[in-house]
Design a binder for these strands. Structure first.
Lengths: 199, 199
DNA sequence: CCATTTATGTTTATAGCATACACACTATTC
DNA sequence: GAATAGTGTGTATGCTATAAACATAAATGG
């Protein structure tokens, strides 16, 4: 029985796991090299065998958080059928992630410098854009509008998530009907031209 | 001619000035106690006579940045006449502040813990809400909608400003017509009910 | 006008952080 | 089995924030 070969065998995964656990609890506060090294019972310098710097470690944890969000969004749209419902589910999930996992959310978006773009990993933005492309396929918006619509809706959802999940006394209330109202307003901002034609 | 009575006489203002200057150049990177103390040619410990901690200093610089934004918004609406134009001018100014002063903007919103709420100081949120109240006074929206509309528009503008001013490769393009498109979509999200009635 | 008090700044010391360098041990591979 | 690559430890350095003691300038009050 080997107690621990080379400690865990792969520190990298252990550090990321510990980092995500800490982020969930207290955001980016305890994601330093020393703190995480101690968390997995290893000397601080061991971290540098797997990450080029403390910033690099934080960036990878941030990436983990972003992938977690993307996974939840993918999960959420899998339960919806209509393109509008699927679109709204992405936004709703994004906002709920910010509210239910404020630590992870802040690490995912505010506390990182340069995310280490990996093409194969799930990306919330891609999921979101796909749902906009579906709107286009259904003829609800025009192909030329896709980018504009994505930017607009993403901005509104991201902004709301940031504000509602923050600590500002003037932050929007995070009640379900408020969120649904927001999604409805976003919807009107998206289909505005069809509304204009109808009137 | 007194060279420097007690150094500058009031360090607090000098530190805030230096902090805002640094924030403009490089965001929250060089806002540490030591760096700013050196910037104004004073020993690090002198800072603590005016701010309870390094975080407190950063929070005050952040407040300065927010006031600067509020001032620009107030300036901008003073040139507009119609309520719609005034409303849109607040959003446009907010976004342009994020694009033209990325360092100040990030310090204003992402890099602070607990802003030291001062009621008398100009607040971007108040300016924004006032412009929404004007929409209400003109009958463009209903009184019961004010909060919802403020939250929605603020979220969209804040989110767009954050994203466009950030470094994400998927960030929205910051071209004038894109921004105007965004403001137009926000407008449709705001007046949605009147549009519905019309059709 | 001098003396006491208050405001402001300096020096020194401590503790925590990231991280470079040298060493040690383990696993792999030839 | 020995060379080598991969992983982890220990120690040292320089940075940061900030506490404690001290120093001096300004204000105040007899």
């Amino acid at each position: 029985m080997k107690t621990q070969k080379y400690h865990h065998g792969n520190l990298e995964a252990a550090l990321l796991e510990a980092g995500v656990r800490e982020a969930r609890i207290s955001g980016s506060k305890n994601l330093g090299v020393n703190a995480l090294a101690k968390e997995v019972s290893v000397s601080p310098m061991a971290v540098y065998r797997h990450f080029s710097s403390g910033e690099g470690l934080k960036a990878s944890i941030s990436q983990q958080a972003r992938e977690e969000l993307a996974r939840r969004m993918i999960e959420a749209i899998s339960h919806e059928t209509s393109v509008k419902e699927r679109f709204e589910a992405t936004g709703r999930t994004y906002i709920q992630f910010a509210l239910n996992e404020p630590g992870l959310f802040s690490v995912a978006f505010v506390a990182c410098e340069a995310p280490p773009k990996r093409e194969d990993s799930p990306s919330a933005w891609m999921v979101f854009q796909d749902s906009v492309l579906d709107l286009c396929n259904e003829g609800l918006i025009q192909a030329a509008e896709v980018r504009q619509v994505t930017d607009f809706a993403w901005a509104a959802v991201h902004g709301y998530a940031n504000l509602a999940g923050g600590s500002d006394p003037m932050r929007p209330k995070a009640e379900p009907e408020i969120i649904e109202g927001l999604l409805e307003r976003i919807w009107f901002g998206i289909v505005k031209e069809s509304v204009e034609i109808k009137k």
